[in-house]
Design a protein around this nucleic acid. Structure first.
Lengths: 371, 371
DNA sequence: ATTGCAGGTGAATCATATC
DNA sequence: TGATATGATTCACCTGCAA
């Protein structure tokens, strides 16, 4: 999943800095189609009226009275619409976004995401291993938060490091529910008085998984609600570039000091298990050209049920069926498709050997002496 | 939390029957403020396009029913608004609603719930213990569905059987994430041909927990998307009255036969949800994500002969060998297999410490705060 | 009776390079 | 832009039959 990057756009970006100001205004100053990934942890405290940030006062005031008891929802929706619009403008065509929230706001954000043209890829549940209990026993322990992962559009070729996440999960594909502890202990940033510096600091483990899974080293990650900079800290550690936007001076100060202390991992540590999809394509005919397989040599299906003969042009023939290793395999199995590389074996010293071994030999040679 | 019930209203209700017809029209015929709880499993609007094959080329049996197809998000929103409006009219002042959905629809439903004046109490995640995997490795395994629990209004004195749920959860406060298996085996209803009678039958364990937690015996439970009647079956089993609404005759027929066969609570069913699980598996990657081990940190084999470096995705690299802690250990020893947990150490204050110590720490946390 | 293996399946927005 | 060819990809259960 390599991508071409626009050097011009990247050069004008304020990489690895924290922009001071309102997130919508600051996003408007950045060039379109310049960001690979956005991670957003927007405000969600709807009950405390007046603390909600209003980007465009005249418009909010205009609808204020009409919305009656739901005026806060309307204002929140407008705010969501505006920052999502800018976020989408900034993303490259193959970019993606993560948004985190709780039941207070996540449903409204998710609906607005879909309305704006984002294409939801997964909703991910962060299951907290140590949540705050429900003290009054009036509801269930609120033990999770919800993240939405969405591509810029339905057509986006988003980045997904499937094999890396599978490796993180001990060889089993990663699920949409992530069990991680909340941020506390040494990781939790404190102010001069010893109080927590930010009320909702997210754990670095959460960002680690997000960035490993949906970015590559060198990608540009924007966090429009930067807070104390968890996104920036993990991005720097993992060799990604970040841009933060934060209104509050106190948060910016804490974040800057925090990120300055982070050391970027060396390139060995940054490398991650890659997908086979990224490996170069090898035509089957090359095995014949190189004499690894002889024309006329018989191949056998892995299940032992079928047999075919190699032809000089790298096609197979079995009974009446002729064609590529994939086509003949599919025809013999009556299947819609077939991966011929894993379907066929040849005999070596009487033992069946998958032809994929030969492809791996060629690929190893290509790595040693790239053409 | 006892409630006074209006005898007059209850007498005119079609208790413990399945109404045939469109849910909005049928709800309009019922008297207002007559229902204690609504459980709704509306169409998810999955928007599936092509076909999907498994790695073995077999075809995935998708939900392609006409009832799940909407022309646009706008059409789905309108449908949601209309049925929610009737649902809210039918609820008693202290009534509540549960709605279940996936990321395709739940954000829109949640926003409309809030717009209609419902007051969200919790969002609850049903974590499937056995979900369908992601066959193409393109996304995370979609391993959960989301339920929203909401009161008719902010002022509703909703029913919540805190102690009963705590008992169901082995004496620990019930959390907002519920681990339950999907509906299969004997519980899954089949038609005459042996195919599944309904594409999306919900497990009774899910309804069991909902009804135990948010209704009392004798309460009236309405399910406007009754399907094959899981809500009715569990309600009858638990001594609650139900009203079902279902358009499709085939589903009604199956549901009626099913509910007629229900007698009383099977006490074994209760034990399923309270049984202890085996010792949890801890992926090595979690130590990296949690910062217990840093990417780039060296590990040493117990015998002192080998060294490896931790990578950001929880794999190791040693010389040319990359892979899991087990794979790299096996490769270095030339052994067919290796338990990486007992093979590798890290250095703490200059002394070697087995990495298994870190796994034990995580397990201790999980035990102290079990799911 | 018990074990093991083959086969089936579940609310799924599930590919991509080349011609 | 659309058709064609290549070839990547699965977890936890369940049932039924064979050994």
């Amino acid at each position: 999943m390599t991508k071409t990057t626009t050097k011009v756009a990247q050069k004008s970006l304020p990489l690895n800095t924290i922009l001071a100001g309102d997130c919508i205004e600051e996003m408007r100053k950045l060039p379109e189609a310049s960001i690979d990934l956005i991670f957003a942890d927007p405000p969600y405290n709807l009950q405390l009226k007046g603390t909600l940030h209003r980007p465009d006062n005249s418009l909010v005031d205009a609808v204020d009275d009409e919305w009656d008891s739901f005026s806060s929802f309307g204002a929140y929706d407008l705010f969501t619409e505006l920052w999502l619009k800018e976020a989408r403008r900034l993303l490259k065509p193959n970019g993606a976004i993560w948004v985190i929230g709780s039941y207070h706001n996540i449903f409204r954000v998710g609906a607005k995401l879909q309305d704006a043209g984002f294409w939801i890829l997964n909703d991910v549940v962060w299951r907290k291993s140590n949540p705050m209990p429900n003290f009054r026993g009036m509801r269930l322990t609120n033990a999770h938060e919800t993240m939405i992962w969405a591509g810029k559009s339905e057509e986006s070729k988003y980045t997904f490091n499937y094999e890396a996440l599978k490796a993180l999960n001990e060889g089993v594909q990663m699920r949409s529910d992530w069990v991680l502890p909340i941020c506390n202990g040494n990781e939790r940033l404190k102010d001069a008085k010893g109080d927590k510096a930010h009320p909702t600091q997210k754990p670095e483990s959460l960002l680690h998984r997000v960035l490993i899974g949906s970015t590559n080293p060198g990608d540009v990650v924007l966090d429009p609600f930067f807070g104390t900079g968890t996104t920036g800290a993990v991005a720097k550690m993992l060799g990604r570039d970040f841009i933060g936007i934060e209104r509050e001076k106190d948060y910016r100060t804490v974040a800057e000091a925090r990120i300055a202390n982070i050391r970027r991992l060396d390139s060995d540590a940054l490398k991650v298990t890659t997908s086979k999809r990224a490996e170069p394509r090898v035509p089957f005919g090359q095995l014949v050209e190189r004499g690894m397989l002889r024309p006329g040599e018989p191949l056998f299906s892995m299940n032992g049920r079928h047999k075919a003969k190699v032809r000089a042009d790298g096609t197979l023939i079995a009974n009446d069926t002729k064609g590529s290793i994939h086509q003949v395999g599919a025809a013999l199995e009556g299947a819609p498709s077939c991966n011929g590389w894993t379907y066929w074996c040849f005999k070596q010293d009487g033992k069946p050997v998958p032809i994929d071994i030969l492809r791996q030999q060629i690929r190893a040679e290509m790595q040693a002496r790239p053409s």
